[in-house]
């Protein structure tokens, strides 16, 4: 024991969280959990096509399982916090890693989605905050009164305001871009890469992101077109 304590290392190597690799693993895991939420939330939302009773019953059901609702919310908030903290720290580190920029730089292989993660992420966050105030808390609800518990009414009257729908569609589009890169990148970060499946995984990430975008934006579009009222 004394031999271990004798010579403390002069320069400690960065630990798991301090390393860029560790932070990316945290981002991959939290990203996967948030993706699971995005899928679950979409599945719930699509019940709007089954009419007011069904959607409002679903809303009541979520609130009735209070013991489960808050742990899930805390988990999601923790994931959001960790995901953003890691990103912010990595972004600052990346900035320090190249103090003098190039006079010219040309991207030759990376996708647009992968290069704009630092933009799509914060905009989606701003949207999520607005979205919670708009349809969960009801503090910002243009387009009529917010009725606690009447989910169907709140959604339809909310989306009848054109700019609420436009902002929603724009943000979901960015979420799609974010997922398009993130869904593939999370596997790479935790060390899963099989060249035989790499192309298929990238295509699958694109397809899943596209399906999610189409699923979500179908709701404001249906409201604006008057298909759901």
């Amino acid at each position: 024991m004394s031999s271990i304590a004798a010579a403390p290392p002069q320069n400690r190597a960065p630990g798991f969280w301090a390393s860029t690799n560790g932070k990316k693993i945290v981002m991959a895991v939290t990203g996967a959990i948030l993706f699971a939420f995005v899928v679950g939330h979409l599945a719930g939302n699509l019940q709007i096509y089954e009419g007011p009773q069904k959607l409002n019953a679903y809303g009541r059901f979520l609130h009735s399982i209070g013991e489960l609702l808050w742990p899930v919310r805390i988990l999601l908030l923790t994931c959001v916090g960790l995901h953003i903290t890691a990103t912010a720290q990595l972004a600052l580190r990346a900035k320090r890693a190249r103090p003098v920029g190039y006079s010219r730089r040309q991207a030759i292989a990376s996708s647009y989605a992968s290069r704009t993660m630092y933009w799509s992420g914060p905009i989606v966050l701003a949207f999520v905050i607005f979205h919670l105030l708009n349809l969960t808390a009801g503090y910002i609800h243009p387009g009529g009164a917010f009725v606690e518990g009447d989910v169907y009414h709140n959604v339809v009257s909310g989306f009848q305001v054109w700019w609420v729908s436009a902002w929603y569609i724009f943000s979901i589009g960015l979420l799609g871009l974010h997922l398009r890169h993130g869904l593939w990148s999370m596997f790479q970060s935790v060390g899963i890469h099989q060249p035989r499946y790499a192309a298929a995984m990238k295509s699958a990430a694109f397809a899943i992101a596209l399906l999610i975008v189409l699923g979500y934006i179908s709701i404001p579009i249906s409201v604006l077109l008057g298909l759901v009222k």
Partner: peptide, 15 residues
């Protein structure tokens, strides 16, 4: 060691 040097993080973009 890679992290002790001033390199940035990998964002898996493939450049």
């Amino acid at each position: 060691q890679m992290n002790a040097e001033g390199f940035g993080n990998c964002t898996n973009i493939g450049e």
